[in-house]
């Protein structure tokens, strides 16, 4: 049983991954819900973790693996309103996941059932990695950079030094380069405006497919900030933290992407 205060939050999470993966299992235990899945070309991996405190009520008295078709769950979530409360429940035997939406004023109740799938998914182990550079920036900024550079080239090189992070691309029409300085660069309406916050052990320069990076920016509505973790010989980790309605950290959505080989 999991009761979420705003159904729209779960919809945003599923919408941010449904175009990348077809099927996945939701692994539920008493602490929360975990998903891990790889895109069919094995170039990227998606994981999310929805901690217990994301939900108003949460109980799971035994470990469950729920096989989900992503397009189907997205269709059901689309039937609710974003500020509806949503109760997720499984039956016994576990072959369906039920969705009960209730409008904020309580005047409308709707219920949908999703047929679960028998999926044999391999559980991969994601190693604890010491990244050379960790870059935190506004989601909207990262999304704009990716979309702008994708109009010029297919891949983007991210170069991180102590002073700045640079995004650049080359295509048939020419080149593009965007550079963000380290640190808070000013204030706007009494709010700090960040270029990029950079934690660095060693400078890194790696290239990535813009097509995938643009997929990842679909998670931009989950959080203000995105965190890019980079290191030589390791996949890029693009992380969006997930917050509950009390603005407490309540999980994450992480994308991993293999760097491209520079030819």
């Amino acid at each position: 049983n999991a009761l979420i205060k705003q159904a729209g939050l779960l919809k945003k999470i599923i919408d941010a991954i449904k175009d990348l993966i077809d099927e996945a299992t939701l692994d539920c235990d008493n602490d929360g819900i975990y998903l891990q899945a790889m895109d069919s070309s094995h170039v990227s991996l998606v994981t999310f973790y929805l901690k217990k405190n994301l939900f108003e009520k949460y109980s799971c008295n035994r470990n469950l693996s729920l096989g989900i078709n992503m397009t189907s769950i997205a269709k059901i979530l689309k039937c609710g309103m974003s500020d509806d409360t949503l109760l997720l429940e499984t039956n016994n035997p576990i072959d369906i996941l039920s969705f009960k939406f209730e409008s904020r004023r309580g005047h409308k109740l709707s219920q949908f059932q999703l047929r679960l799938m028998n999926l044999e998914m391999e559980r991969l182990s994601i190693p604890d990695t010491e990244y050379s550079c960790i870059i935190e920036m506004m989601c909207s900024e990262f999304s704009k950079v990716c979309h702008d550079l994708a109009t010029i080239g297919d891949s983007m090189t991210i170069t991180c030094t102590k002073k700045n992070v640079t995004f650049d691309t080359t295509g048939d029409l020419g080149t593009g380069i965007v550079s963000l300085k380290q640190g808070v660069v000013g204030s706007e309406n009494d709010e700090n405006v960040y270029a990029a916050s950079i934690k660095i052990v060693k400078p890194v320069s790696l290239s990535f497919s813009l097509r995938y990076l643009i997929y990842f920016t679909k998670a931009s509505s989950l959080s203000n900030k995105v965190i890019l973790h980079m290191g030589e010989e390791v996949p890029l980790m693009v992380e969006y933290k997930i917050f509950n309605t009390y603005e407490e950290e309540a999980g994450y959505l992480r994308y991993f992407l293999a760097p491209k080989v520079n030819e």
């Binding site: 170039v43 990227s44 991996l45 182990s125 190693p127 996949p235 293999a258 760097p259």
Partner: peptide, 14 residues
């Protein structure tokens, strides 16, 4: 496109 890692292989070996 050529990539530095096959992620399935990468995460399988941990």
């Amino acid at each position: 496109d050529k990539y530095q890692n096959d992620l399935l292989e990468y995460f399988r070996t941990g």
